[in-house]
Design a protein around this nucleic acid. Structure first.
Lengths: 221, 221
DNA sequence: CAGCGATCGTCAGCGTCTTGTCAGCTCATC
DNA sequence: GATGAGCTGACAAGACGCTGACGATCGCTG
């Protein structure tokens, strides 16, 4: 899960970032409205936490721009004042939840989780691609009818590949979605992951398109 | 099981809240329509108890908004007047049950239990999941035909898992539903609970999906 | 009120699983 | 056959979950 934290006070931002990382999120931080807007438009987040008082561009404006540009990830608004006008303005601008400062970091995370659950709750629970079957509810997988035990990362990698049916996905793109940052040094980590998956599933389960990336065998050949 | 109580008279709200807590629910209270609507939209409840006469936003309106936003938890309506027009309006707006004031708190709880059972697709008071059998009325359990003595917390944990048939439930989500707050520090408490349950039931009764959570063995295989 | 048992959160230590890294290898491609 | 992208086995650090122990709390009993 990737989250964008938009907060100009670096202390607060760091606190939230750390807590969310500990809760299993991959976190990016933007410290002004311009940066936030840009990242929200160019990256692929699962949730955004948006402070309203921002330099350069106001938080509400960022929110409206995102929504007018069809960015659909859930958004939680933070605001120093716990007043109704701002709250309603935020909701009407397209926010999904609202939290007044000061807040408990635990409550923030609980709400983020709830939002993501809801946002994801409408998609089907299992995904099939070729001989592979992923059950996102049970977090279990079968390959050619045989149950396979997968680790968290392995599952997420397959899940992403299964979504990109028939498209070769580069190691860099995989790293970006698994770790949040496109660190070129991660290439070998992805290779290692793929190898472990081939061993668990089948040597031919994941095809390599040399120079382009990986794709699931039989998924839209 | 988490319940939202929407009631503006604080005495009544406190009575209901206490009774429901004693019955094993985790309870949140909202005292006006706006708050109720917001909580219902942002939190994850198993049932809501909704008074119709509310400040700010009328109960019926809250109800319609929830339903138009696909919030699907069961809802019981309370109203001071025991008349048919209101009852019909409530049912048509998407309520699942109706109780006229004054009412017996015991009856309310019985109806809540019935609703939750029905919402989960169970017709009787007992829930079966694999070798596990839970009797929600008597708070008793058997595993593989053998009776098992469970504490309140243990029972509620199993009950929640049994409702989420075949879904991996994270320690955080379990904490949220057992304690009402998602305090990350609770993770180990959940682990300890799970261990005690495995000792009472069977070492394989609860499966661990490392990195994802727990699920009942054989529930929907 | 003291004593007892049950419950349950917390802590610390342990074992296992996961995963990034490295070094060397294979093989496709030109 | 030269080159470099990708593969693979080994390894170690760290994450994760498990477990036994302990103590605080609560309700019950004498």
């Amino acid at each position: 899960m990737r989250a964008l934290i938009v907060e100009d006070e670096t202390d607060v931002a760091a606190d939230i970032a750390q807590a969310m990382q500990e809760a299993g999120f991959v976190v990016d931080v933007a410290s002004d409205g311009e940066d936030a807007w840009f990242r929200g438009n160019t990256e692929d987040y699962d949730v955004a936490i948006l402070d309203l008082g921002l330099p350069r561009i106001d938080g509400l404006t960022v929110l409206r721009r995102w929504r007018s540009e069809q960015r659909s990830f859930p958004i939680i608004i933070l605001s120093a004042r716990n007043d109704w006008t701002e709250r309603v303005a935020g909701i009407e601008a397209g926010a999904d939840d609202y939290l007044g400062k000061p807040f408990e970091i635990g409550e923030l995370i609980a709400r983020v989780r709830g939002l993501i659950r809801r946002a994801a709750g409408h998609t089907s629970a299992s995904i099939a691609a070729g001989k592979l079957l992923l059950d996102t509810n049970r977090m279990s997988a079968t390959y050619a009818g045989r149950p396979v035990r997968l680790s968290q990362l392995e599952f997420r990698l397959l899940h992403y590949l299964a979504h990109q049916t028939g498209r070769a996905v580069s190691a860099g793109e995989l790293a970006e979605h698994l770790y949040g940052a496109a660190d070129p040094g991660d290439a070998n980590a992805i290779e290692a992951l793929v190898m472990r998956l081939r061993r668990k599933l089948d040597a031919d389960a994941i095809e390599t398109r040399r120079g382009f990336g990986y794709l699931l065998a039989g998924s839209g050949e």
